[in-house]
Structures are given as structure tokens and as C-alpha cells.
Design a protein around this nucleic acid. Structure first.
Lengths: 184, 184
DNA sequence: TACGTCATGTAAGTCGTTACATGATTGG
DNA sequence: CCAATCATGTAACGACTTACATGACGTA
């Protein structure tokens, strides 16, 4: 799933600008399973235009760069279809957080607790975002994808929260141990 | 988390060959949150050697390429520590499957059902693999990371299976509708 | 005999990220 | 007035993938 196919896929839902595509892909309702920045979207759009898979209508506005509203062409739809007809590659999850967590025992005490707290609030925010997208969504397949995101992020959140409690308990036990010996 | 830091991290658990690192990173107990192939590991190891972050002991064996057993140096540990001391970047999930699922309604009927079935058995296998790794694991932080993997993959599996049932029901209803009109 | 595992590496190419460049408008 | 949003794009760089090259040993 390279950026070109991603653009084609997004444009198959309606015409829009490169700016809009990036928004959908990295903040919007597709952002939980893909990622693309300006630096890859704009060149992709140029190439797709050259190949005849998309066209654009230019809207000139004073002072601003010309707004280009892209739409997918028939040949673009065919290219998308072709890409969709071969089996999807494997899902990939990359987590620096989990990598860092591997060394929790070699880092200062509060290190992991801080990271964990951050990850929990981050995940909570993601769940909220996905749920509200899901509520607004009336397109069934998008709903399926959003539901998937909600399911795994809720599971992640539950796991992290449960772990957090055990960490807090351990810390409390240690603290009370210290208290007894340090308390004057 | 580039490949160099990944290598450093893995080597901090014990000395091993580039071949072993790749196994851990793309099939073993780290593979659910990172990924690295030979083509990135071997060059990374050379660079780390140049930088003095790792050393290797060479074992010559007739006919085979020399086996190089890498170990992390003190400077390597420092580099790892440094990398770990800044906040981890955001987790990233990339799913071609979810992207494809977006167009389920525009593809042939059995298309999505086939993909879904494949994804279910794939996820089931992942859950099994992670669980068995978890059982064998006696290193707490690794256990935490594995547990995370189990949690999200189990959630994904449950979601997919539940969805699968509704799809099957729909198909059955449609089939029986067809049956009545087609049955001679 | 053919495949899988062990084992290392390179070279070319693709792909994407980051930083830069520009600039108006709107809301706090 | 400052930050964010809208809006487009390029250039350099870095990172990773894919394919290639080599070869022994064990096992089905």
C-alpha cells in the first residue's frame, strides 16, 4: 500500500485537495491504519496526474497558491481495482514504546511509570477520537475499519491500565518500606 | 527506533550473530512491534562496529562464511541509554487489510469473506505464537511487551470473528433468497 | 534430490521523511 | 500579536527493501 494507491483510494470517495488527503490520512478517519505526509502525497499526486489516474481542477485565489481539487479518473479506478485484487500484505505494528519498555528494569524508577502514564492518556485519546468518528460514520466499510481500531485500542488501554495499577501498588509498598526506615 | 538502536537493544540481552538478531526481530519475541531484515541488519552491524558500539568474535568454519558473534560494548550501552532517555515516538499501525476492507462493497461478494477468513486464521496464529512465547518468558519487561501483543491480537481476533458471524448470516439470508427463485 | 536452515554480505533502487520556502486569513 | 489553519511544493537525505551471490549440511 504505497502512497499512490492510498491517494487513489481516498479520492475514490470524493474529490479533494492534497491538503485534505493528508488530513484524512494522518489525522482523520483513515489515520489509524496508514500514514502519509505532504512530502509523499504531493509528489504522488503529480505522478498520478502524469499517469492519467487523476485530474485536477484549479481554483485561483489571490495570494494563496492555486487550490487543486483532484478527482480520480476511470483509469485511476482501474489501477485501484488492480491493486485491491491482489492479497493485502501483512499488517505491521511498530512500537517504540514497547521497545523502550523492554529496558524498564535498567532505567530509573520513575522512567517507566512516566512513559506508561503518557501512553495511557495517548491511547485514551485515540479511543475517544475513533469512537466519535465511528458515531459520525455512515459508510459501512469505514465503520468496520474504525470498529477494528476501537477494539484494539480499547484492549491496549485496558491492558495498560491494569498494569499501571500493579505498578502503583508495588511503588506504594516500596515507599512504605522506605518510610519506616527513613521517617525520623 | 532505527535498526542500529534495535540491534543494540537486542545485543544488550546477550551476544549473538546477525542471523540471530534478524530471527528475533522478524520472527521471534520482538517481532510483534518491530521489523528488520538482513539487508538492514548487516549494514547496521558494520556501522556499529566502526563506531565501537559493538565488537565481534569471528569463528571460522570450513566452507561457511565466518560466523561473527557480536557483543555490545560499554560505549554501545551508553548509546542505547541515550536513545532510551528521550521519549519514544508514536506507535504506528499499518494495515493493508483495513485499507482493502474500505472497498469491500465495491468488490466481488466473496472477496471480503476470503480476506476476512485469511486474516482471522493469521491473527489466531499470531495469538498462539505470542502466548507460547509468553509462557516461556521469564524476563518481566519482555513479558509486558508480549502481554500487550496478546491483548491487542486477541481483541482483533474477537472483533473479526464476531464480524465474520454477521457476514455469514447475511450471506445465508441472501442465499436462501436466491435458492427460492433459482431452485427449479 | 530438493528443500529448509544456517550464515554473510552487497548493490541498486524505492520510498518516504525532514526541512525549507511562501503567504493569506482568522481567532484568541 | 501570535498561533493555527489553509495550501502547495521541492530538495536533500536517510532508511529500508529486494534481489542477487555463495555455499555447506541435514533431512525427508
Amino acid at each position: 500500500m504505497n502512497v499512490k494507491i492510498l491517494c487513489l483510494g481516498i479520492l475514490s470517495f470524493g474529490e479533494m485537495t492534497g491538503y485534505d488527503i493528508r488530513k484524512l490520512a494522518s489525522e482523520g478517519r483513515f489515520s489509524h491504519f496508514c500514514e502519509a505526509g505532504y512530502g509523499s502525497i504531493y509528489p504522488a499526486l503529480s505522478q498520478l496526474t502524469e499517469a492519467g489516474h487523476v485530474t485536477f481542477a484549479e481554483e485561483a485565489e489571490a495570494g494563496k497558491p492555486n487550490r487543486k481539487i483532484y478527482s480520480i479518473t476511470e483509469s485511476g479506478r482501474q489501477a485501484l481495482h488492480l491493486a485491491l485484487s491482489s492479497a493485502p500484505g501483512a499488517d505491521r505494528f511498530k512500537s517504540e514504546f514497547l521497545f523502550h519498555s523492554l529496558f524498564a528494569d535498567k532505567m530509573p524508577d520513575d522512567y517507566f511509570r512516566t512513559r506508561l502514564a503518557a501512553k495511557i492518556s495517548e491511547t485514551r485519546a485515540t479511543v475517544e477520537r475513533l469512537k466519535s468518528s465511528l458515531e459520525k460514520c455512515d459508510h459501512e466499510p469505514s465503520g468496520f475499519a474504525l470498529g477494528f481500531g476501537v477494539a484494539i485500542n480499547e484492549a491496549a488501554l485496558a491492558y495498560l491500565e491494569q498494569y499501571d495499577e500493579t505498578v502503583i501498588m508495588k511503588a506504594a509498598l516500596e515507599d512504605s518500606g522506605f518510610m519506616e526506615s527513613v521517617d525520623e
